[in-house]
Simulated scan of single mutants.
Amino acid sequence: MSIIRIPGDPPLEVTLRRSARARRYSLRVSQLDGRVTLTLPQRAPEADGLAFVREKEAWIRRHLSDRPEDHVVRAWGTVPYEGRALPLVPGTGRTPQLREGGLAVPGPAEDVPPRVLAFLKTRARARLAAAADGHAAALGIGYRRLTVREARSRWGSCSSRGDLMFAWRLIMAPPEVLDYVAAHEVAHLVEMNHSSRFWAVVGGLMPGYEAPRAWLRANGSALHRVRFGD
């Protein structure tokens, strides 16, 4: 992959991605993070790709302007946490602590975004592990390993070896949404498909899962628009 830059106000950055299956140029503007990607055939000249981007510049800028604004976490604003806007307030000590008035974050203002991010990832792992453990115990089965990471394309996954993966950003959603994703992936330990049998397992673990599933479909992109610092 390579990046081309188009001058303007603001300048545009376009990621070039070559694909052996591509037969024509195609542009995509991500609603998650505003990333602009041009996919071009394997042997297409880069100069032709640049010309195509310039031709579509107005289209790109229109789509970027229509995209909802990012939520940038800064001192002393707010951060989404378990479905609510959690105020960030000055704190003491070495690590952020939940207080009645919000999340108390120690250190200077420039250290707030990375410390809040670390706090969220730690909380996400603990909550997801607890949820997965509970659902696995309800089924009388176990899993091999659990990882939590940044994931753009899916909220969770279950491998054929029994490894579970979850997106840490689920900690920003309401608790029942996180619990639904945990139940969904644990159910794959029994049914590695999305058949009626699979959904019956999910429903047994979490009756009423349809509501948090709908919430995630409607609001999940907003979780990806939370950024930590400029």
Rank of each mutant, 00 (worst) to 15 (best):
Q42G: 14
R43S: 15
A44N: 07
P45W: 15
E46D: 11
D48M: 14
D48F: 11
G49Q: 06
L50V: 15
A51V: 07
A51M: 06
A51W: 07
A51F: 08
V53S: 01
V53N: 00
E55V: 03
E55M: 02
E55C: 03
E55S: 04
E55K: 02
K56L: 05
E57G: 00
I60V: 13
I60F: 09
R62E: 14
R62V: 12
H63M: 11
L64H: 10
D66E: 15
R67N: 08
R67C: 11
R67Q: 08
P68E: 02
E69S: 11
D70F: 13
H71F: 15
V72G: 11
V72F: 12
V72P: 11
V73G: 01
V73H: 01
R74F: 11
R74H: 15
R74I: 09
A75C: 09
A75I: 05
A75T: 06
W76C: 09
G77E: 05
G77L: 10
G77R: 05
T78P: 06
T78L: 10
V79G: 00
V79K: 02
E82A: 02
E82T: 01
E82P: 03
E82I: 06
R84C: 12
A85I: 10
A85F: 10
A85P: 13
L86S: 03
P87D: 06
L88T: 02
L88D: 01
L88A: 03
P90D: 03
G91K: 04
G93E: 05
G93I: 05
R94A: 13
T95G: 15
P96V: 05
P96F: 06
P96Q: 06
P96M: 10
P96A: 06
Q97D: 11
Q97V: 15
L98K: 01
R99P: 12
E100H: 09
E100D: 15
G101M: 13
G101D: 14
L103D: 05
L103Q: 05
L103M: 05
A104N: 08
A104E: 07
V105F: 06
G107S: 03
G107W: 03
G107K: 06
P108V: 03
P108K: 00
A109R: 08
D111E: 10
D111C: 04
V112R: 00
V112G: 01
